[in-house]
Simulated scan of single mutants.
Amino acid sequence: MSVSAADAPDALSGLIPSRIVRGLIVAVLSGLCFALLNTSAKELTQQLPPLFVAWGRWIAGLVLIAPVMLWRVGPHGLATRHLGLHCVRGAFHATGYALWYEAVFWLPLATVAAIGFTGPIFVTIGAVLFLRETVHRRRWIGVAIGFAGMLVVVRPGLAEINPGTWMMLAAVPLISGSNLVGKKVSTHDRPMVVVFWQSAIASILFLPAGLWFWHAPTLPQVALFLSAGLFGTLGYFFLAWSFRLMDISALQPITFLGIVWAAAMDMIVWGKTADLWTFVGAAIIVAATSYIAHREARIGRPR
């Protein structure tokens, strides 16, 4: 009997028998890598057009992962029986991150992280609108509280809303859709295959923007692109790995550490971070989305 990708042993199985502990460890590593990716990307968007940065980041990731895969498993290791799902994910991902790269130019990383926490809220609404799922009163209360937290971060009418805020609010549901499809393909393909196809498809989809906004990068900018490609590739590799080990709802609270890493990078690199209200709103969103994740886990648990 064949073993599915989800049940196959991984590199940490011998050291850490617990599947849950392995899932938590690689989820934390994923968050750290994404924080370093975001730092490199934000620095690049201060110097180059954001959509050119998006294309360059994916090209750098592909340059880094393709030789490793060819060396380890050969061309046959790139094969997948689920190319359609990878393409669907790529469409969500490229559209969402086109908006994200524009938003990160305008906003502190901590604000980007706080708005990004609303992902489970959009997933719940999408399940009602597009999947016709029944959502009960308690989960709607969690959604309402989460939106209240988002309003605390954005503060319409009390604080100036720059274009980055609107772009980030539009990006979150698209990125959430990408993560849901990513969870699906991760049960069929190994993490490196998932990340390879994600990088290849995103590079193709961002190609027109990359050519339109072309700038010859300097050597320091090339180093930042390679940094973004490396940490982005590692981040998605660890994320796909964690998807194989744990339910996406159980992993959600780990992503809330992202605002800690983001605030630290804001202070270390740029000497400033988001205001107090961003962290207050983030705390409210964390509470609401944790409750939604808890309800999802209870509903999905066998009786």
Rank of each mutant, 00 (worst) to 15 (best):
W58Y: 15
F256T: 07
G61R: 05
P156N: 03
S40K: 07
L36P: 01
L151C: 08
L234D: 10
A8N: 07
G146R: 10
A159T: 10
S249P: 03
A216W: 11
W270V: 05
M265W: 12
M267P: 02
H136W: 12
G177M: 04
R89G: 00
V154W: 04
W261P: 03
M1A: 14
S203F: 08
V153Q: 05
A288R: 02
G84P: 05
L276G: 02
W212R: 14
W106G: 10
L15P: 09
I292C: 09
H82Y: 11
L219G: 06
F243P: 02
A110W: 08
R138F: 12
A103L: 04
F196K: 06
K272D: 14
A293L: 08
F213K: 03
G90A: 09
L219R: 08
V123G: 08
R190M: 13
I20E: 15
F231A: 03
A148G: 15
G210K: 02
V135N: 02
A148Q: 04
T273E: 03
G258S: 13
P17F: 02
F213C: 11
P67H: 05
G56R: 06
Q47F: 08
A274W: 07
E133M: 12
V135A: 07
G126T: 02
S186R: 07
I141L: 15
G232P: 09
G300R: 13
V26T: 14
K272F: 06
L276Y: 12
F117W: 01
H136L: 13
R301I: 00
F196E: 04
I20F: 15
A110F: 05
T289H: 10
P50M: 06
D189V: 01
G77D: 00
L44F: 04
V53G: 01
T45A: 03
P208N: 04
I20Y: 14
P49S: 01
G31P: 04
V260H: 10
L12N: 08
N179Y: 15
V26M: 06
G61H: 02
I16N: 10
L129N: 10
M150N: 11
V128R: 03
I204Q: 00
F92D: 01
V73H: 11
I299H: 11
M69C: 08
Q252S: 14
V172R: 06
F231W: 06
V280S: 05
A223G: 14
P220L: 12
I259L: 05
A283C: 08
S176T: 15
A127W: 08
H76T: 13
L78K: 04
V104D: 10
A293K: 07
G164R: 06
P220C: 10
A287Q: 06
